[in-house]
Computed example of a mutant assay.
Amino acid sequence: MDLYEYQAKELFGRHGIPVPAGRVAATPAEARAAAADLNAPVVIKAQVKTGGRGKAGGIRTAAGPVAAEQEAERVIGMDIKGHVAHRVLVETATVPFEEYYAAFLVDRAEGGFLAMVSGQGGMEIEELAANNPDALVRLPIDPVTGVDQDTARLLAAKAGLPEQAAEVLEKLWKVLVAEDAVLVEVNPLICTTDQRIVALDGKVTLDDNSAFRHSWDYAEESDSLEARAKAKGLNYVKLDGQVGVIGNGAGLVMSTLDVVAGAGAAPANFLDIGGGASAQVMADGLEIILADPEVRSVLVNVFGGITACDAVANGIVTALGLLGERGHGTPIVVRLDGNNAEVGRRILSDARHPAVRQVSTMDGAAEMAARLAVGA
């Protein structure tokens, strides 16, 4: 479960991590009142569970209450990569002297935890890792010993952070452990001109499996793509790309995400429809994916097994019929393989749906979907 920034900062505050003073507002009038109470220049920040808010115009400064109301009017209701901002965080504007990056996360490949710390914050971590990998300190963390004072000081020193940042790093680790989180990230973690270490942003992902141990009450906005998918029983994760992906089986879907990336485009989602790809399941999946304004093409990658490809093909045809005009505007690339693949392909060919393109290989299908998405 991903938290909104304001929720992550509430957790930080409870664990003694300094954060800017702020309040959540659901209306422009509430934003004005919050700015008046803070009695200082503020930042209006869209509360959505995705990155790129600044580039999309979802983070704005305001000199006072009137400006805060005006900026909140612009931000509330904004769609950022398929996420609608229903609230804003009105926060005291804090000028950084230096910006850092800090994160603790589950390292599934190694069966432990990983610390990532850098003296260069404020940019996407993928960009930092690609452009300057030496600037990112990675340190495996033993689940038993965790992050004590000495480990926190070592991380700070290796990454070039000031000594006082070690205390905050140690507390971030405590957030991860105490709250059963799989990710705790701050970007940027800043040092102010008066040498205070402050979490200027916050991202926390909680482990749903541990909900029985907590009294969490983090409701998802009902019109987010994730919430709509969950209501339909779909295993869906929103990503920041242009190619919608549907597959049957988590392993196949993960492989499909990789080949889409290798073909020069970015996947827009993870969507596993499982073994029973009925017409309704396929319709629900396509409806969710096509509701994402970032999606430029869809790749359906199915390997027939228990559910044969002819059943999947009939599901696709029926789903497109159920979707009507919504299923015509975005190209859909379909790759069927495995049990009854030839029959399934013939069903799709006979349907002659204008949105559907068939490709026999996964790599070829990914290349076509990528080409259609990026306009190459």
Rank of each mutant, 00 (worst) to 15 (best):
G122E: 02
E127L: 15
G146Y: 13
Y101E: 05
A33F: 09
K45M: 08
R60Y: 14
Y101H: 09
E99C: 10
P96E: 06
E91H: 11
V48P: 04
T61Y: 13
L139T: 12
G52I: 02
E126K: 04
E30T: 04
K81I: 11
R153D: 12
S118R: 02
V43F: 13
V48I: 12
N131F: 11
A85E: 09
A103E: 03
E91S: 11
P140Q: 08
I59F: 05
G111C: 02
E126A: 14
A130I: 00
R74T: 13
G146P: 12
S118D: 02
A35P: 04
V95Y: 00
R74V: 13
A129T: 07
F97D: 13
A25D: 03
H83P: 03
E127N: 15
G119T: 10
T151N: 12
P65L: 13
D37C: 08
A31V: 02
E71N: 00
D107L: 11
R108D: 05
T27Q: 03
G121K: 04
A130F: 07
V88T: 02
G22M: 13
L105V: 06
E73T: 13
A33V: 09
A34M: 06
T151M: 06
N39E: 11
Y100E: 06
V117P: 03
P133Y: 06
D134E: 13
D134G: 06
T61V: 12
V90D: 02
T145F: 10
E110A: 14
P28F: 00
T61R: 14
A135F: 15
P28A: 04
E110H: 15
A26D: 13
P20F: 09
E99D: 15
I76P: 01
T145P: 03
Q120N: 14
G119L: 09
A29Q: 13
R153L: 06
T27R: 07
A25H: 09
L128T: 06
T151A: 11
R23Y: 08
T145G: 08
M123T: 09
P28Y: 01
I141L: 08
G77D: 01
E124D: 12
L114R: 07
